[in-house]
C-alpha cells in the first residue's frame, strides 16, 4: 500500500512540477554546500527521515554537496538554535525538527529559545499519523465505551508532543485522562501490556507491533489526512470533540498532527535560495531514491510542500487569539484531566 501511496505522491509531484523553471531555479544550489542539522540522535525516527530525505536531495542536486549533522537536545531546540546562528554566507543551513518545538513556542515554554516565525519552511517529510489507542484487556473497543468508563484513564505520554496532544484530547473530548509524562516507548508498551496503563497516544506506526499482537485497538485519529486507508473507519478529533469546542482550533490541532518532521531553512537564507530549496524538496520527495529509502526504512511517505507548511504554521504561530485559546485548553486539560463536567471552551 505504501508503494501505491508513494507512486501517487510521485505522480502528483511530476504533474504539478514545472521542469524547465525548476531546473533553472535549482541551479541556484549548484556548487553550494547544504548542511542539514538533524534534531535527533543517529538512528532515531527524526534521523531516519532526515537520512531518507538526503538520499533524494543528493539525487536531484548532483552538483551540490549535502552534509548531515546530528544535533540532538532540548527536544529539538538545539538544532534550531544552530540553524538560527547560520549566516547568509557559507553553507546553506537547514534544520530538521519535529512537533515539539512548535508546541513549545505556541505554549510559551521557557525552552523555546528560538523564533520559528523567522525561519523559512521548506516542507514536511511525513504525516504524524497520531492516534489514540486503548488496551484490549480493558474490554472497550470504541471511543464511546471509553468515554463511558467512570474513571480517569492512565495515559503514559512518550515525549512532549504526545503529552500536549493527550492533554488537548482530554480538554476537547469527554475523555478523562491521567497523563503521565516522560515515559519512553518501551516502558509505555510494558505498562499497556501489564494493564497498568490504559491508553496511548502516538504515531500509528509506532503502535503497530502492539496492535498486531492484539494488545491495542485504535479508537481516535488526531489528524485529518494522510492515514492508511484501513483507518478510515476510526473517528477523528473533529468527529468526537465536544460541540462547544471551536472548530477553528480543532482545525489547527489537526494541521499540527498532519505535519511531521519539519524542514526549515535558516532565517538568514536568501529568498531565491529558499525558493530553490522548496523546489528541491518537492523534487527530492518524488524521486525514486527517496521513495526507496522510505520503503526500506518503513517510513510513511506523506510529504507536504513548503508553501502549505508555511500557511499552516502562520495559522498556528501568527494567530495570537487562537494560541490563547489553545493555551486555555491545555490548562483546562491539565487541571481536570478533562473531567466530564468541565467545559474547556469557556475562557
Amino acid at each position: 500500500m505504501r508503494v501505491l501511496q508513494a507512486f501517487l505522491v510521485s505522480f502528483a509531484a511530476i504533474l504539478t512540477a514545472a521542469p524547465a523553471s525548476a531546473q533553472a531555479d535549482l541551479a541556484a544550489l549548484e556548487g553550494r554546500t547544504v548542511r542539514l542539522v538533524i534534531g535527533g540522535s543517529p538512528g532515531n525516527d527524526t534521523d531516519r527521515y532526515g537520512r531518507a530525505f538526503i538520499e533524494g536531495l543528493k539525487a536531484v542536486l548532483p552538483g551540490t554537496t549535502i552534509l548531515a549533522q546530528n544535533l540532538n537536545g532540548g527536544g529539538g531546540a538545539l538544532a534550531l538554535v544552530e540553524a538560527m546562528a547560520a549566516t547568509g554566507t557559507g553553507p546553506i543551513t537547514l534544520a530538521l525538527t519535529h512537533s515539539t518545538p512548535v508546541y513549545a513556542q505556541i505554549f510559551g515554554s521557557d525552552l523555546a529559545v528560538y523564533d520559528l516565525n523567522a525561519f523559512h519552511w521548506i516542507g514536511a517529510l511525513t504525516n504524524n499519523q497520531r492516534v489514540l489507542a486503548v488496551r484490549t484487556s480493558l474490554g472497550v473497543t470504541d471511543f464511546a465505551g471509553l468515554a463511558a468508563l467512570d474513571r480517569a484513564l492512565v495515559a503514559p505520554a512518550s515525549g512532549t508532543a504526545a503529552e500536549i496532544e493527550a492533554t488537548l484530547v482530554a480538554a476537547m473530548t469527554p475523555l478523562r485522562l491521567h497523563i503521565v509524562p516522560d515515559v519512553d516507548d518501551g516502558l509505555r508498551a510494558t505498562l499497556l501490556m501489564s494493564g497498568d496503563a490504559d491508553v496511548a497516544i502516538g504515531s500509528q506506526i509506532s503502535l503497530v507491533p502492539l496492535i498486531e499482537a492484539g494488545q491495542l485497538v485504535m479508537v481516535l485519529r488526531l489528524g485529518s489526512a494522510g492515514y492508511p486507508p484501513g483507518l478510515d473507519a476510526v473517528p477523528t478529533l473533529r468527529d468526537l470533540a465536544r460541540p462547544e469546542i471551536s472548530r477553528e482550533i480543532i482545525g489547527l490541532t489537526e494541521s499540527l498532527n498532519n505535519l511531521g518532521r519539519l524542514v526549515l531553512a535558516a532565517p538568514a537564507t536568501d529568498p531565491a535560495i529558499v525558493e530553490a530549496l522548496r523546489l528541491a524538496f518537492d523534487a527530492a520527495m518524488a524521486h525514486p531514491a527517496t521513495i526507496a529509502a522510505y520503503e526500506g526504512g518503513d517510513l510513511v511517505l506523506a510529504p507536504t510542500p513548503g508553501a502549505a507548511v508555511e500557511a499552516a504554521m502562520r495559522g498556528l504561530l501568527g494567530n495570537a487569539s487562537a494560541r490563547e485559546v489553545l493555551v486555555g485548553y491545555l490548562a483546562c486539560g491539565e487541571r481536570e484531566g478533562g473531567a466530564a463536567d468541565e467545559d474547556c471552551s469557556r475562557p
Binding site: P42, G43, N44, D185, G186, A189, T190, M193, V208, P209, L210, A213
Partner: peptide, 12 residues
C-alpha cells in the same frame, strides 16, 4: 517479540 526496544542499541 513485542517491538519494545530493550535498550537504546536495540531501538536502533
Amino acid at each position: 517479540f513485542f517491538g519494545i526496544p530493550g535498550s537504546s542499541s536495540m531501538a536502533i
